[in-house]
Write a protein that binds this DNA or RNA. Sequence first.
DNA 1: CGTTAGCACTCCGCGGGGATGAGTGCTAAC
DNA 2: GTTAGCACTCATCCCCGCGGAGTGCTAACG
Lengths: 362, 362
Amino acid sequence: MPFSPGSGTGWVDAMSEELSERSRLILKAIIEDYTVTGEPVGSRTLSRREGINLSPASVRNVMADLEELGYLSSPHTSAGRVPTEKGYRFYVASLLRVRQLSRDLREYLRRECQLRELDTEGLLREAGRILSATSNYTGLVMVPRFTTTVFRRIEFVRFSETRVLVVFITQAGIVQHKLVEVSEPLTQAELDEVTNYLNQEFTGLSVQEIKRRVARQMAQERAIFDSLQRRALLLSSSVLQHDLDDRVFVEGASNILEQPEFADLAVMKRLLRTFDQKALLVELLDKAQQVEGVQILIGSAEAHSEIEGCSLVTSCYSSDRGTTGILGVLGPTRMPYAMVIPLVDYAARLVSEILKNESDTI
Amino acid sequence: MPFSPGSGTGWVDAMSEELSERSRLILKAIIEDYTVTGEPVGSRTLSRREGINLSPASVRNVMADLEELGYLSSPHTSAGRVPTEKGYRFYVASLLRVRQLSRDLREYLRRECQLRELDTEGLLREAGRILSATSNYTGLVMVPRFTTTVFRRIEFVRFSETRVLVVFITQAGIVQHKLVEVSEPLTQAELDEVTNYLNQEFTGLSVQEIKRRVARQMAQERAIFDSLQRRALLLSSSVLQHDLDDRVFVEGASNILEQPEFADLAVMKRLLRTFDQKALLVELLDKAQQVEGVQILIGSAEAHSEIEGCSLVTSCYSSDRGTTGILGVLGPTRMPYAMVIPLVDYAARLVSEILKNESDTI
DNA sequence: CGTTAGCACTCCGCGGGGATGAGTGCTAAC
DNA sequence: GTTAGCACTCATCCCCGCGGAGTGCTAACG
């Protein structure tokens, strides 16, 4: 379960700064306490804690140092300390030890995913739901990018004079569809021929490869009067022209409202608006998708004010060569990473495994 | 734009009780004032209002009567009056005069819907988004019930040894898909044969009709050894067995948070949880779907506590014989019905029209 | 008899002013 | 280096008193 160093603001990255053993201990304790209570942590509380044999005053000294270094902050003079984002990043990168998911939970997840007969889209949605229910935060799942998917089958259905419904099925079993306008009328019989031709020609190729091939053939055989082939090429190029939308499933949006840090109305609205629009989610997930393994984004106010106070834990899943999507959990930065990280990790592995198993290559 | 009398608690229904002209005037004024301000309305405010030439004291007398009858209530002794649900129902059933939608808005909606090349699902989603954006509340769209839809085309794609991906396209252009388990392995070639057979056999029938036919044939021809036909029947019956899920699009869930009446955290959570789960939405929409025309449900605490304080304005759309879905707006009971009702009405007509136009029968 | 002015009453919301208590930083002693 | 002690700072809570909006009632008016 490697944490890859991310790039850009907010992503957890290796830290150069070194802290003394004692400072690390105290920072860890503060974060773990704060994770549970959500309240600023005071020196008394800490000094009473198992494993810390220091008086409140000594603890205060350390805390003052940590605050100076930017790992902690205090909401006001007479409150305890709260971890900063920097503190969290350090914690996740250097202090956190994640355990494996309990056997029970692993088996539970596996059963949930396999229980129902689900097509791929159903499986992905279900994965999101499970992530959400298990973590009590919001589950996010992005279906694989269209261009990286491997083509399995295409179908054309005549819809009206000039409109054709294109159904595109990827190797992983994701069904996407789209209505395209055609310049010259086509009968269903002609469409069927086109369908056969394209299915023979392109099965097993990635969308990218198909695009290249279509372009090449169209250039090459401009003079060809085999109308079937010409039409097929025209149609498929107009299908591939615009990518089909990237799709994100957001499950359990209301879960996040339970978090006391989002009790503020304005914050809550901003968050839900983000869920509604999805554009930012796609952007974030996309960025995380470029890296393997579990990725952790700890909300940074500068970069993405919409999800201030939030963290995003993600991992990629894949079905076959090149085709990867991403799934994860969005919750408050004050999140039990030791639980969420292995959860997301396992979910991604599970989805990958199921996708690979259930679709043999044709 | 007829308002059909609904059945069951909460649905707007014809009212037997009669009110004096003056009472009606005052009730109307109170509701319209409250719709704008969201604050309890006092007698002074009303008496100063255009069209009411009564002193505050007289107004108070009428208000006391209306309160006695259950059309109004006062949050506490020294606040003004607020309409009750009963008050709203009476208002919608008897006092409200809806104007037509402005030409500008009509044209705007039409343009928005036709602007992009959208397949049916895209159109329905877009309709939801537009309803939400125009009303500033939450847009709901339910795709037509599976059993009432008319079959256009089916495709089978071999997915693994024992799994077949079924893609089902309705006359209206809605694509649904599903993975089914088969007992005996099938090659893609066999599946193609089955596909052809079924498409020839069933195009243009409703799912219900197909179900009946399949059942009849299976009973009749038990002894038939034409394996193609047998397999085709087996497959299609296992597809039709479980209805595909009813699907609801919820657009602009965050809009509803802007409403001051939902500023309360608990209320808000309950509402969003309802959006997440969708089951209740399906139930409500389903009930409204049984009636033609614009339907108005004014939130009733007894029947559906989850949407207490909310109203639902819906109307059915249809593409072809029998196939109807429903769309609408969910907002606070304090809602400008005079605007929302024609909006929903027009949206439903628009969607119906576009669906009918763009798909000729094959 | 309906309408209206006047008046006492009620109750919400707001702002001020302790009291409380948690937590800190500093200093000095161990 | 660690710790006890102490003064200090704020947020929170609660209480109180006030102003204002709005009511219901009563009595006077046309």
